[in-house]
């Protein structure tokens, strides 16, 4: 168990120790429902609104009396969110709070001269996410396997292992990179905290803000416009087949899964392969049916990610790809009401 001060809890209010602290101080839900606590409810609501805009909620940890309100506003915010029950809001809040905590974790990691301070963020990372971070010189190091499990979810090239300093099975990171690496898990952890919150007896004074959250969420109903243009990887695959050249199995798989995802039928897709040097109509149809999940194990396969296609030398990225992570997203433009 970590030995935490109130300031630590204000920075990381999602820790299990927060509940203990509140119980020790004698706070309970009924009490928070009293009109005197209205400002904290408003602060909690504000904390959610800021998160929904994609910004990080700024906390003032300067004064001791603010620390309690920091902790309580987080607790009330998760009650409001659970009561409203809108996954998009919960997701956005979890991510924003993860990024807020990330900021503090980074600050704490930087204070290398204060051993207790440093020990604390490393222990949070180890306790919550089972990642052992140690220090070598000015760097933070983690095992390659632990790194890969997290870094593969990032699409920026600098996170690829080849762009990291790697020695003896360890990856070397800065404090910023270390906390960035666990952001997603931190968000998932906060999300799980919200999901497990008990909202059986939500105070009446919270109801109005819960209703406001439901209204707020309506703004996030996105619509998309989709162009009919094929992404360059798919164009390339079709061209290779048109020329009667051999498209590797992975390329054929990509083409079939892409076209299936775009709603084409097996009858429409199968003829595309007729120029392949080893074309056999029966085999082709069997394989597409298998990929579509209409035969065999009934597993419907998805189009491989851009990352995977890069590894297989099937990616021919152009500026219009615009940071997409899967070919099926190509040409999709978000028209948001927010």
């Amino acid at each position: 168990m970590l030995q935490l001060g109130i300031k630590d809890l204000a920075k990381y209010p999602f820790l299990a120790e927060t509940g203990e602290y509140l119980r020790d101080k004698g706070f309970n839900l009924d009490q928070l429902g009293h009109p005197d606590w209205k400002p904290i409810v408003e602060k909690a609501y504000g904390r959610i609104v800021v998160a929904t805009t994609g910004q990080i909620y700024g906390s003032d940890l300067g004064k001791l009396e603010n620390l309690d309100s920091e902790i309580l506003s987080f607790i009330i915010a998760i009650i409001l969110l659970k009561s409203a029950g809108i996954p998009t809001l919960i997701r956005r809040f979890s991510l924003a709070e993860a990024r807020r905590a990330e900021k503090y974790l980074e600050q704490d990691l930087r204070s290398k001269d204060d051993e207790r301070k440093l020990d604390f963020p490393l222990k949070i990372i180890q306790d919550l996410f089972s990642v052992k971070v140690t220090i070598q010189g000015n760097d933070f190091v983690i095992k390659v396997a632990d790194y890969l499990r997290r870094a593969v979810h990032f699409h920026e090239r600098e996170w690829k292992l080849v762009n990291r300093k790697v020695e003896n099975g360890l990856v070397f990171l800065t404090s910023h990179e270390t906390v960035r690496l666990i952001r997603k898990e931190l968000a998932a952890y906060i999300n799980s905290k919200i999901q497990s919150t008990n909202t059986l007896s939500v105070p009446e004074t919270f109801r109005e803000r819960v209703a406001d959250l439901v209204t707020l969420a309506k703004k996030f109903s996105d619509t998309f416009t989709v162009s009919t243009e094929y992404p360059p990887c798919i164009k390339h695959a079709i061209e290779v087949l048109d020329r009667g050249e051999n498209l590797p199995h992975s390329g054929r798989f990509m083409l079939a899964t892409y076209l299936l995802a775009k709603g084409q039928t097996i009858d429409q897709i199968a003829p595309l392969f007729k120029n392949a040097p080893d074309y056999n109509e029966r085999v082709t149809r069997y394989q597409i049916e298998h990929i579509a999940g209409t035969s065999g194990q009934r597993t419907k396969y998805s189009c491989p990610s851009c990352d995977k296609l890069k590894s297989e030398n099937l990616c021919f990225e152009i500026p219009e790809c615009n940071g997409i992570i899967n070919p099926v997203q190509f040409g999709k433009k978000r028209v948001t009401n927010a």
Binding site: R149, E158, L161
Partner: peptide, 16 residues
């Protein structure tokens, strides 16, 4: 997916 990135490392593939 993680093995794919490990393979890229070994192949010196994707270095910036």
């Amino acid at each position: 997916r993680e093995r794919a990135d490990l393979a890229d490392y070994i192949m010196f593939n994707g270095i910036i």
